[in-house]
Amino acid sequence: MTGWFQRLKTGLGKTAIRLTQGIAALVTKRKLDQPMLDELEETLIQADLGVATSGKLIERLKRERFDKEVSSEEVREAFAAAAAEILAPVASKLAPDPRRKPHVVLVVGVNGSGKTTTIGKLAHRWKADGLKVMLAAGDTFRAAAVEQLQAWGQRAGVPVVAGAAGADSAGLAFEALERAKREGVDVLAIDTAGRLHNKAHLMEELAKLVRVIRKLDPSAPHDAILVLDATVGQNAHNQVEVFSKALPLTGLVVTKLDGTAKGGVLVALADAFRIPVVAIGVGESADDLRPFEAMAFARSLMGLD
């Protein structure tokens, strides 16, 4: 007896939810006033957009809609559109140019941001695209970092160039590039040790790595990717600023977006630095590295969809 009733209820469920939301929106429709603006600003700050960028979005909304009837959903939509507008120019993707033989991708970031995992996933994708890929285990500092990359290399069926623990990472990168050239590799991805950007000597080490590989290929690295953890807060600004001083950053990868963190700091970064976002990580498996889509990202940021 409960059978058909249950089915009906489930069937109507979605419609019902939408209806309730619609009504709620109608009922809560009110004039855009200061308390509402404050509440909205807080939503933005809680998504890690930062005080400055949040303020900017709020100012804009205030100019356009103040004292007009709006619903909270409408405003969220408006914000999502504004955020997407900021993000759209930075939405990009990694497109290795196999004619470079090899296209060198250098991956950098602070400790634990997900550099090695990102490289593993990238290798997987490139390999599937039919490219000849090689990885360089440049993290010679952290215990078992080399083994970690080797495991990824094995999974993807891609050779990994590794040296002894504690070896000079610039030397290793040089060696890997030499070998990649010799073997006609399409893409060479170089992993590096995690480093905090406020340690001058470690940043100098990165600059040295770039200098050294340029001896073999003056145009390398063709991509220098900074890997950011989605949970990172306003410190991301410092990271981008300092890393881009040490080497020419060409893109950002945002990892761990499958958690509760939304990576709102990206909007602030896009606003301030305009460095392309080339991929986002949404899970642990190899296929979980996706292209970055400005609108989808902005909507999820505002709690839409």
Partner: peptide, 15 residues
């Protein structure tokens, strides 16, 4: 937990 964590620190810690 990472000292660099943003607003999401609250959610993580709470959960």
């Amino acid at each position: 937990a990472d000292a660099m964590t943003g607003q999401d620190a609250v959610t993580t810690a709470k959960n």
